[in-house]
Design a protein around this nucleic acid. Sequence first.
DNA 1: ATATTATACCTAGAATATCAAGGTATATTT
DNA 2: AAATATACCTTGATATTCTAGGTATAATAT
Lengths: 116, 116
Amino acid sequence: MKLDKGLMAGSGAMLVLKLLESGDMYGYQMIEELSRRSNQVFQMQEGTLYPILHGLEKDKYLSSYQQQAPTGRMRKYYKLTKKGRQLLAEKQAEWARFHQGVQDVLSGGADALGLA
Amino acid sequence: MKLDKGLMAGSGAMLVLKLLESGDMYGYQMIEELSRRSNQVFQMQEGTLYPILHGLEKDKYLSSYQQQAPTGRMRKYYKLTKKGRQLLAEKQAEWARFHQGVQDVLSGGADALGLA
DNA sequence: ATATTATACCTAGAATATCAAGGTATATTT
DNA sequence: AAATATACCTTGATATTCTAGGTATAATAT
C-alpha cells in the first residue's frame, strides 16, 4: 500500500472478501478494483494479495474456478462461499469496534463529551 | 488487544502519542488510560507497549524522566517532544486516509452513491 | 519482425508489529 | 506470611505485508 505497511495489516482479508461480495473476481482485477473503490488509497501488491487468496481458499472462505477471458487468456476467478460471507460479517463487525475505539481515543476519550 | 492482532498493527504508536498529548504518563498508566478512553476496546499488552515507548524515545519523539509516586515507588514518565507532536499529526492524517479508504470499500466503492 | 509493455499468475525472503510468557522488584492487601 | 496489584523489562513465536524476483501470454510500439 502507499500507506504505512502496518496500518493495512489485518484489513487485507476483509477488503478482499468485501470485493467478492459484489461478484466473482480474479486476482489482478481485485487489485484494480480495490484501488478504484478506495480512490487510489489502496494499491495492494500481488505479493500481498495472492497469499491472502490462497489462505482464504484453503480455509473454505473462497472457492475458485478457471475461466477464459475474451482475449483467450485463462483467469482464476474467486467466489465467496457461505462461510466466507460469515467471515466478512465478523470482520466488518470487528472493524467497526476497532474503528470506534480509535475514534474515541483520537477524540480525547470516550467520555470527552460528557458521556462518562 | 482483544481484537484481532493484525488490526492493531500500525496504530499502536499513534495511540500512545495521542495519550501523551494530554499530559505526561508512565507506561502502566497508559495501558489503563487507553482502555478507559476506548471503552475497554484496547487492552494493550506490556510486551507491545514498552517496545513502542523505547522506540519512540530512541528516535526522539518522546523524552522520559523518573518521578517518585506518592506510594514511594519510582515511575518512568514519558513526555511528548515537538518532534513527537509532529509525528502524531502525520499519523492522524494517515489514519484518516486509511479509514476513509476502508469506509469507501465497505460502502461498496467511493462512487457507490453516484460520485463517479 | 521485434521489442516492449500490460496482463495474469505465483513464491521466497526480509521487515515489522503484536502477543504470550516469562522475569524482577516494590507496595498493598488479606 | 502469602497473595495480589503495581511497575518495569525482554525473548521468542506468530502474523502480515512488501520487495523482488520468476513464468507466461496478449497487445502495442518500433
